[in-house]
Amino acid sequence: MIKIWSIKKDNSSAEKKKPKVSAAQIRVQKDLTELALPETMQMTFPDEHDLLNFNLSITPDEGFYRGGIFRFTFNINNNYPHDPPKVRCIQKIYHPNIDLEGNVCLNILREDWKPVLNLNSVLVGLQYLFLEPNADDPLNKDAAEDLRTNRKNFEYNVKQSMRGKDVKGVYFENVLS
């Protein structure tokens, strides 16, 4: 007969040894297998053994930012999914919801994060920022003002910035793919 209680005891002694794979890693692994990356997104892992730090590039196929390639870094800490991933844009871009340091203003990456969300939710959120920049919740106030008051002008400025030109004296990075 199988001695259930002794199995349990064996397991609990194994439990004391530090687990090789953290809960965060297990969860990220699950997120990644469920991920359905659209053609406009690409993920790369600089260290293939480290699932918690990776890069994402977005190449929007419509909207103001069409034709650009936008690069982000993802850093996931060991408290994931209780803490949201840290997402940063590594280029200087002209966007109402991304500041010049690359901080991203997306509600689910901040106050509205909850652990039932996953990497897919974050990717959908980022994709959405490029299709529908949001002037009501700005990190770059100039860009938001621009979008609110004159869409045509905003569109022109976005195109200028994507070519690596300056917008109101600030030089941006050439992101054309």
Partner: peptide
């Protein structure tokens, strides 16, 4: 076949 929404196990 339901999973915990937090850990997905």
């Amino acid at each position: 076949e339901e999973v915990c929404g937090i850990c997905r196990v």
